[in-house]
Design a protein around this nucleic acid. Structure first.
Lengths: 215, 215, 215, 215
DNA sequence: GATGAATGAGCATTCATTCAT
DNA sequence: CATGAATGAATGCTCATTCAT
């Protein structure tokens, strides 16, 4: 897809050399921003520090992003997109709905993607940014809806096959699932031992699927 | 001689007039701060705006709180304490563990307490503040542990009576429960219709207790 | 002397009870202010701290002094007056000009009066306060002139008796003498051992009187 | 190819264009600060006013100095260094100790250097700043000691040649000399006519060297 | 008279954003 | 294009002064 129609610059067709370099730059910036964001959160992420980590001048960031908020939005989209692509892959696998949900949990808890998740989970869990900032960006909604629809689809699938309880509203199931996705950090606050991604996914999966009730 | 009665020193229970007024002021400030905090989050909550909303001078806030962080801490404690008192009441009722959890969910989703919850939920969900700020305050940990212990107690009770599945770790149950407590705002993001507190509590409660699986 | 014509208050002739108490208050405030001033200097001397040290309310200070500057002025006058009375006593003694100067030096270096001296020496050595603050107060000039005149008188006396060199202008002698009066604190900066008041007065006196030249 | 010449790194001797401009800016700021400092003292020297006088934005100052204190320290060092360089030149001249002291006095009284002297004299005369501020900066001590050592050296020289009285402690001589260095402003307070630097140096020199005693 | 809570102007400092080079 | 010096609005905080009680 990605039919970019931006190449109107005089010099050339913005071939692939320049463009590739440009994309690289953007990528580096996002990576650094992600790092800082994960370490310090939105408000303590300074453009200076990002630039410094990339090794470019502060002004250069503004060549690629109109402002700090926009950089964050990009970060968010990137994280979500990456997450989504994983979800999409999982969603399309010929597995039971149950299996697919478990895989998604595992992906969410995966340390590897942690930083990226952190960025958009931060938005989910609220309080982290001016809400307008985030919501004003309509595209974000679209991405979120896409995420929601993938999961809803799985939930509906499950209902159809009888795997899941048809009497519970899908939106509630979805909501609860999303809540559980955000790898909890109460652990650290409460001083509990951390679980591995697998363990956590397994146990949380059991709660989500079968509840905490004894039979 | 010096037959001092019990209320002559200014700092402590200084009669009731001054002290009452003082408490009122503090309350007003906290209320305004809570509002701003809920609207904009910690970093965009400015002392100026709080003062303006209360209708007092900026300096007055500093008569009651040493600084912005302390004001936040107070806010946090206030929210958590209020929440905790509800939890404590519920926890002590002669109800089944299951019933008690449901009541707690209802309390958490109650619109009335929403803003207060938001403040300390914000801390839960992280990213909102410099972690040091929050964690340096040891009492906070204590309060959080108290919350955790109330809920853990109920969970253990349930396990003992056979209501809950003894093969799932209490810490996981707890973690999942806390995650679900935070009234989800994906709703608004996803444009879904909101549920009432009762409905939400009921449905989420079902998921938490019995899972989403069909029988 | 002190023929105060301020007693026009309705209640009474502002007898001596009220007035005495009033003077006591003023004295206590000045004492505390002097202390703080000596410890922290003008700008870090806060009305709050002074009030706290006296054990009165901040507002009460304003019943006796129109403002911080005025309090300082009073402090200055008090120190200078006290110093002056010493000078006056010394000046009037039937001693040689030389002896009298030595006594003045000793008084200046006397640890006992240190705090009081510090206050007005601070003005001398400049930089400590907005110059206008000090100079706007014309009376200060008068007091300073009085100090200058006492010393000039001694210097002239000395010239008359041949004790002092008539070819050096009195104003220079005066200026140099005043400079030497301010007990130096380079000592502490330079890490030198401090002298006692006597030693210092003696040695500085020798320099001032006979110069550092070998004969 | 990258035929880098010897001056490509920004931080260090970055060529001469940028660096020169930078030094100019720093110089302008220091000059303005010096002015304000001389007029109002440390506490009433506001960053705003300095910026305004230079004609730059407030933030720009912080590009060159980490904070107000540091700006002051720089000011102090600058004044003292400048003064010291003069002293060093004088001290090394093949003149009698007496002559050298006179030259130093002249330099100190020179109107031209007045403002610069004022800054570090302000530190000398104390009261002007939180003592910690100044003394915490160890280098300051070093500079002061260097000044003291230059003068002590001259004094010792004089004693060795018999010019000066060997029975007076060098530290006292030094202390007295430093006191006299601070061009007295009692003049202005006392309304006396000011002397020219030469006259003043000459007369004060006579006092310092030979004392005020008539033979 | 006292009090001390309230005021609000003033200040140092930060940082996203701009723009001349 | 890239740079990074410059900007200036915004913010937390202090403290002399006022005034209702």
């Amino acid at each position: 897809m990605e039919t970019k129609t931006f190449s109107e610059n005089p010099p050339a067709a913005a071939g692939s050399l320049k463009e590739r370099q440009r994309q690289e730059r953007v990528e580096l910036i996002l990576e650094a921003a992600e790092e800082v964001m994960a370490e310090k959160g939105y408000y303590e992420m300074s453009m200076d520090e990002i630039a410094a980590r990339v090794g470019i001048a502060k002004g250069t960031i503004y060549l690629h992003f109109p402002g700090k908020e926009d950089l964050f939005i990009a970060l968010f989209k990137r994280g979500l997109t990456s997450f989504l692509s994983g979800i999409a892959r999982i969603a399309s696998q010929p597995l039971s709905a149950t299996e697919r949900l478990k895989l998604i949990l595992m992906q969410a808890y995966d340390e590897h993607r942690k930083k990226q998740s952190q960025v958009f989970m931060a938005v989910f869990s609220g309080g982290n940014m001016r809400k307008e900032t985030v919501l004003k960006q309509l595209q974000m909604r679209e991405y979120l809806k896409e995420l929601a629809s993938y999961i809803s689809k799985i939930l509906e699938d499950g209902k159809a096959t009888g795997e899941f309880d048809g009497s519970i509203q899908t939106s509630v199931m979805l909501t609860a699932f999303l809540s559980l996705l955000n790898r909890p950090h109460y652990e650290e606050m409460l001083g509990e031992a951390s679980f591995s991604a697998e363990e956590l996914a397994d146990q949380v999966g059991r709660v989500y699927l079968h509840g905490i009730s004894g039979k």
